[in-house]
Computed example of a mutant assay.
Amino acid sequence: MAEHLERREGERPELPAKPKRGHFVQTDRAAHEAWAKLGTKHPAASALLHVFVANVGESNAVVASHKILSRLMGSSVSTVKRALRVLEDGNWIEVHRIGASGTVNAYVLNSRVAWTEARDKLRYARLKADVLLAEDEQPKPVADDKAALHRLPRVGEVQIPAGDGLPPVSQPSFPGLELALPATDSQSE
């Protein structure tokens, strides 16, 4: 099923539900108080920070376009850009460009502000992120009836071989490095 942002007249779009990891986002008191001050001085930046915190993955990072962020905030792209500058200058987030245009970025939340996982896991935040996409930003429509993608096995998974395969490789031992295999009992049961 295609997952995309739906917009009803006068409403902010809703993202598809994420798998439940827990229902808490943690913040420390000093950061929470600073965030409250940010909300009075730069309301759009505070609202965007809430959007990020609501959508970050396990490692405090999210990837999104300016267009999607503007939809989630219910504001213009120029408001998002101004809010991003405030958040980056205030050390609330780090911004890492993806591609040359700079309209899609990886946003890493300052782990001293808000986090969803144990802090010892956050040092890997730049390796992983949840990516927010919208169907209307794609070059082709998202089809519900597409064939499933091939999945590569993960580390630790055993792939079951199929088909005839290749004959085993046979290589003579190097002189002096012959394998010392244990002897087997010549009587089979």
Rank of each mutant, 00 (worst) to 15 (best):
E6P: 00
R7A: 13
E9S: 10
G10C: 05
R12T: 11
E14M: 05
L15W: 01
R21M: 14
R21Y: 07
G22I: 11
G22F: 06
D28R: 06
R29G: 04
A30M: 04
A36Q: 09
A36F: 02
K37V: 11
L38F: 09
L38W: 09
L38C: 08
G39A: 15
G39K: 08
G39P: 02
T40P: 01
H42T: 03
A54P: 01
N55Q: 09
V56P: 00
S59D: 05
S59Q: 09
V62M: 15
V63S: 04
S65K: 01
H66V: 15
L69I: 04
S70G: 10
S70D: 03
S76E: 09
V77R: 11
K81N: 13
A83S: 09
E88Y: 03
E88D: 14
G90A: 07
G102E: 06
V104E: 12
N105Q: 09
N105P: 00
Y107R: 06
V108T: 10
L109Q: 06
L109E: 07
E117C: 10
E117T: 15
E117K: 04
E117G: 08
R119D: 12
D120R: 08
K121F: 08
K121N: 13
L122A: 12
Y124Q: 11
A125G: 06
L127C: 07
K128D: 11
A129P: 11
E137V: 02
P141T: 00
A143L: 14
D144A: 14
D144S: 12
A147G: 03
A147N: 03
R151F: 05
L152M: 09
L152G: 08
R154V: 09
V155F: 03
V155G: 03
E157K: 03
E157T: 10
Q159S: 13
P161V: 12
P161F: 05
P168F: 04
S173A: 15
T184E: 10
E189L: 14
